[in-house]
Amino acid sequence: MPSVRVYVRLKPSLLDSAGRTVGEALKNLGYAEVEDVRIGKLIELKVDTVEDSRIREMCSKLLANPVIEDFTYEVVGEKA
């Protein structure tokens, strides 16, 4: 059964408060090379059929909020 990996990211123009905090923590640990951190989400769907239009629909309706987030996805495993 194929999996769909959906990646959801906050739009680049928006401040990621949590990401900024993680970036500061990395610097505190001595990783001075870290310029910026952005936190996104990985959502894995197991589906019995892969239909691109339906995946896009699921992403824009629920998995991502198009007002604040961008999404990409990839299909892993056998495409039915």
Binding site: S17, R20, N65, V67, I68
Partner: peptide, 17 residues
């Protein structure tokens, strides 16, 4: 109401975290 599209915009984590 924002998530359902009834109102425009969205709410994110407070700047001060």
């Amino acid at each position: 109401l924002c998530e359902s599209g009834i109102l425009p915009g969205a709410l994110l984590q407070n700047v001060g975290r």
